[in-house]
């Protein structure tokens, strides 16, 4: 059957190169990282040699030491908890800011919607570091925001506060950088709602508040879940925002991982932290996918 084999050749020719590339540069490195998390650190940083004998006195072979160390010191668990808290808070604030905007766009005349969505995406045109830098300027101690706040605090006899280099600035930064990720899925969801449902609810005597909580909100849950995943997951791994906007104590998972690779150079411990982050991220992604699918199915039913 020449036709059949030609089909198979095409299949290999087309899918082969990208598959090989991704196996080599995505899957293999990921597996190596898993392996590295069970290794000892090398004498001069990095890993103890993977293959062959190490330097004299160097530990080689596999170990659970990294995982044990992580659980033995509460400071690491605490950093994970703090990262969760920051991610959760940022996601909530994004939701509160994005929902009214997405709703307004979805209920605007058709011709205006594309422009309003474009205006949400447009800030993405600037580099992520530039957006963080913009906040550094705006929250700086000599800016109107800080001086007027401290002026007001002085009126009440309170001391000065720093806006920049604080946990507050970290959360503002996370929200600022990720807000569009929340607006877009919400809008995509809200735009599909059938206005007839709201009319029906009104005919049945529901007031505006009831129409929102009983009709619009439950139907928008899939949008809320996918938007939340798109904000929550990247915030968990972020290190540049705490680095630039946070104070010395604002260390999140991302900073901890970065330090293991570029600072103290304990690669096995860093790999272990990365594995933990991966597991957590996959867990959350699975939950979000499940929730939005379940509610999506209910919406279609």
């Amino acid at each position: 059957m020449p036709k059949r084999s030609a089909e198979r050749t095409t299949r290999w020719l087309v899918s082969g190169p990208p598959t090989l590339f991704m196996l080599l540069f995505f899957l293999a490195p990921s597996l190596i990282m898993v392996l590295a998390s069970f290794r000892y650190p090398g004498t001069f940083g990095g890993l103890a040699p993977m293959f062959g004998a190490g330097r004299p006195g160097e530990d080689t072979g596999l170990t659970l030491e990294n995982y044990r160390f992580f659980l033995s010191d509460f400071i690491y668990v605490e950093i994970f908890i703090k990262s969760f808290a920051v991610a959760l808070l940022s996601t909530l604030i994004c939701l509160l800011m994005a929902y009214p905007l997405a709703l307004l766009i979805a209920r605007s005349p058709k011709g205006r919607r594309d422009l309003m969505v474009l205006l949400v995406i447009l800030p993405f045109a600037s580099n992520f570091l530039i957006r963080v830098y913009a906040l550094m300027i705006l929250l700086g101690p000599q800016q109107a925001l800080a001086t007027s706040l401290n002026g007001a605090l002085a009126l009440f006899g309170l001391g000065r506060v720093n806006l920049l280099f604080s946990s507050f600035a970290v959360v503002v930064g996370m929200v600022y950088v990720h807000l569009p990720f929340m607006v877009l899925p919400l809008y995509t969801n809200l735009e599909k709602h059938d206005p007839a449902l709201l009319d029906a609810a009104q005919d049945l005597g529901a007031n505006g508040w009831q129409r929102f909580w009983r009709v619009t909100f439950p139907l928008s849950l899939p949008g809320i879940f996918s938007g939340s995943a798109l904000v929550f997951i990247p915030v968990l791994g972020m290190f540049a925002i705490p680095d630039l906007l946070g104070g010395t104590r604002d260390i999140l998972i991302g900073n901890l991982i970065k330090d293991q690779f570029l600072g103290t150079r304990d690669w096995p411990f860093g790999s272990m932290l990365s594995i933990m982050l991966t597991v957590v991220v996959l867990g959350f992604a699975a939950i979000a996918a499940r929730l939005s699918r379940r509610d999506g199915a209910r919406e279609e039913a």
Partner: peptide, 21 residues
């Protein structure tokens, strides 16, 4: 998958791969 993961994970795993392997 690489599109959906936090970027730091890809960065770190490639660093180990390039240097160590």
């Amino acid at each position: 998958t690489p599109v959906a993961m936090p970027e730091i994970l890809l960065g770190v795993s490639l660093l180990i791969f390039f240097v160590q392997v």
